[in-house]
């Protein structure tokens, strides 16, 4: 069966250099755009100031890009089902958790444990946005963005509703650096709908494509600078959406399966 296409209503992006999709899109098109200064942590408005201070980076980044995509689409963040995907969760939290457990496990703080669950960003998003809709938290190793995109598109078509997709990973900290290559911070968001609102939306056709597929090559220096990141499998699609009105690309879902996407004007 041919799955119906989904339509991209809006995008969100946060890296320290390009803390928003408009700037990131320019960088991904190869345009000269000065990196932002002084943005080490985003400040999503859905969290109160005291919550922002305590929240892990992954939560802040995920909420920031979710907010950006909703605002760009004029969508109410309270009304959308959401899919959060992350290869590793917040690695600074994992590092701190493991250090405490190794040193004196009885000193583990309840808040650190809250923050360590893989659905921390999903939970804080629901609380901050007052959103009672279904929200999930996924992982699929180096293919976490592609797996999250598949789930968001599946929900979008299966339930005929717009779905917010957020992908976010942090960088390895402490001893985790010896086993985890992720460096830097990257969060992305995409609001997918089952029908276009107008010609500005991009249609994405999608199907599972058996076989081994290498990651599509990255064209921009801005994307290549992030290619060691755990959420880097999002980069080819965001580069395509920044640049080309129509294109086709296959994102690997595993060593034996790809997600074949065709991007075209709605």
């Amino acid at each position: 069966m041919l799955t119906p296409p989904v339509f991209v209503q809006a995008l969100g992006w946060w890296t320290p250099d390009w803390p928003g999709w408009p700037q990131a899109a320019k960088a991904l098109r190869g345009e000269a755009v000065a990196p932002a200064e002084g943005q080490r942590r985003p400040a999503p408005r859905l969290l109160a100031a005291n919550e922002r201070r305590r929240a892990p980076d992954a939560v802040l980044m995920a909420l920031q890009v979710g907010e950006e995509a909703c605002a760009a689409a004029g969508a109410d963040p309270a009304t959308l089902p959401s899919v959060f995907t992350s290869a590793h969760g917040d690695l600074a939290i994992v590092d701190a958790l493991c250090r405490t457990l190794a040193a004196d496990p009885l000193l583990l703080s309840p808040m650190r444990f809250h923050h360590s669950v893989h659905n921390a960003a999903s939970g804080y998003w629901a609380i901050g946005a007052h959103n009672p809709e279904a929200s999930t938290a996924l992982a699929a190793g180096a293919h976490s963005f592609a797996a999250g995109w598949l789930e968001a598109a599946t929900q979008c078509i299966a339930d005929d509703r717009a779905v917010l997709l957020v992908g976010c990973d942090t960088e390895a900290m402490g001893a985790l650096q010896s086993v985890n290559a992720s460096r830097g911070l990257l969060a992305v968001a995409m609001l997918l709908a089952p029908a276009p609102r107008g010609a500005q939306d991009r249609a994405i056709g999608w199907r599972l494509q058996p076989g081994a597929h290498g990651a599509p090559p990255l064209r921009s220096a801005a994307a290549r600078a992030l290619q060691g990141h755990a959420m880097a499998d999002a980069l080819p699609l965001f580069e395509a959406l920044a640049d080309k009105p129509s294109t086709g690309l296959t994102l690997p879902l595993s060593a034996t399966l790809g997600l074949a996407l065709t991007v075209a004007p709605a």
């Binding site: 669950v117 893989h118 659905n119 992982a139 797996a147 598949l150 789930e151 599972l208 595993s254 399966l257």
Partner: peptide, 11 residues
């Protein structure tokens, strides 16, 4: 297995 594979981690 060679179909889609995903981990759901919502506690």
């Amino acid at each position: 297995l060679e179909g889609p594979a995903v981990t759901v981690s919502t506690a």
